[in-house]
Nucleic acid binder design. Structure first.
Lengths: 205, 205
DNA sequence: TAAAAGTTTAACTGTTTGGTTAATCTAAAA
DNA sequence: TTTTAGATTAACCAAACAGTTAAACTTTTA
């Protein structure tokens, strides 16, 4: 009794595409059915409701965005290496999923309850606390300039994520086609860690 | 024959609130009517369609976000002062309109045509080019470390805007109430310019 | 092969939604 | 006061929408 995974997967793929492009409220079940090349009733056969289907896509997206951060900040490397690794890995993830940040941020804004629910059992918070401590240690030992750990974390995330969230605006404002935008991102991957580390470099005595 | 501006304004205020909270596709004309305390037909009496009403709100929001940047980058102050002024003014605007960035970015993503249309006649691009030249001059004169002007501009905007776009996520992740979030922003206003200027400080010979 | 179980579809349903209409209300103009 | 023009509303409409149903089709099983 082999389950036909193909249809289910086609639906997931179609739903991901449509939801991430149009958001929960802008997406139509018919759009998803068309994209998957199936009858609309099949959506309800496999995933009972629009909301159930949406939750699967949202969780998958949130997972992809947040777990990467958790993984890298969690291990035991020195702070400067960790910052470099975080920028590199994170921007790679975002390059392959450029529309994820705006989608996730918009849907969290619509219903913050989603993300609260998501965090339960993911132990993001303790992992983050450890990273905060590592930053505070570096400040106390004068390895970096004084900075509040949450501010630094937000600085790093901002610099990585924002260009993707703002990509349609950027492409218009700077008059870039997709190819040029990718060049911009590639240059950014190289230069961002040193920008951040330069900002943190302590004064020489 | 005095025109009753009050109803029209009440509709605009209600529309702004609802559209910015729920987005174009999530907003309901009935919600806006309820928020304004009037009959739904009045919306169509004053502003023919949902789309017309939305465009007014969207343009107003885009104006508020973009013109501030244009004004500050446009004048003739030195680069370091300009960066400081940009952070300060921009974060003030955002503090008073914290949900504008996510709204505008989401709606541009839905329909990039909107922003292309918006730019016409606003001469954002030439103003931006002048700012790029100023940055390039500072690089050439070794006043700041080498950096591509668009990268620097995106760095500044990212660091200012992202915390607001991500505020519901931040508040959950860092477990902040509104008051604590505001404290975070106030601290950020003080420290952000020096963070950026430190990153740009050239090596001493 | 027969029947049972799982998959897929066309057609349908009830509700929500943007938008319209015709009637009523209000206030200024004559 | 009567008329007239704009402001406001309740009731309505057609299209869009998420979700259902019953029948047909396909595959597995006995």
């Amino acid at each position: 009794m082999e389950k036909d995974i193909s249809t289910e997967q086609r639906i997931i793929d179609a739903a991901r595409k449509v939801f991430i492009q149009k958001g929960m409220s802008g997406a139509r079940m018919q759009d998803i059915a068309d994209e998957a090349g199936i009858n609309k009733a099949l959506l309800h056969y496999y995933f009972r409701s629009k909301d159930k289907l949406f939750q699967i896509i949202f969780r998958e997206a949130a997972e992809k965005l947040l777990v990467t951060v958790k993984d890298i900040t969690g291990n035991e490397t020195p702070l400067d290496e960790k910052i470099t690794a975080l920028c590199n890995r994170y921007m790679d993830v975002l390059s392959e999923n450029p529309y994820l940040p705006l989608f996730v941020l918009h849907e969290i804004h619509q219903d913050p309850g989603r993300i609260i629910n998501f965090f339960k059992g993911k132990n993001m918070v303790p992992q983050l606390q450890k990273f905060f401590l590592q930053i505070q240690d570096a400040v106390d030992n004068k390895q970096i300039k004084p900075i509040s750990p949450p501010q630094l974390v937000i600085n790093i995330i901002s610099l990585c994520v924002f260009p993707f969230a703002a990509s349609p605006l950027m492409q218009t404002l700077f008059d870039l086609d997709t190819w040029q935008f990718n060049l911009f991102i590639e240059e950014r991957k190289k230069k961002l860690p040193e920008f951040i580390l330069a900002a943190l470099k302590p004064e020489k005595k």
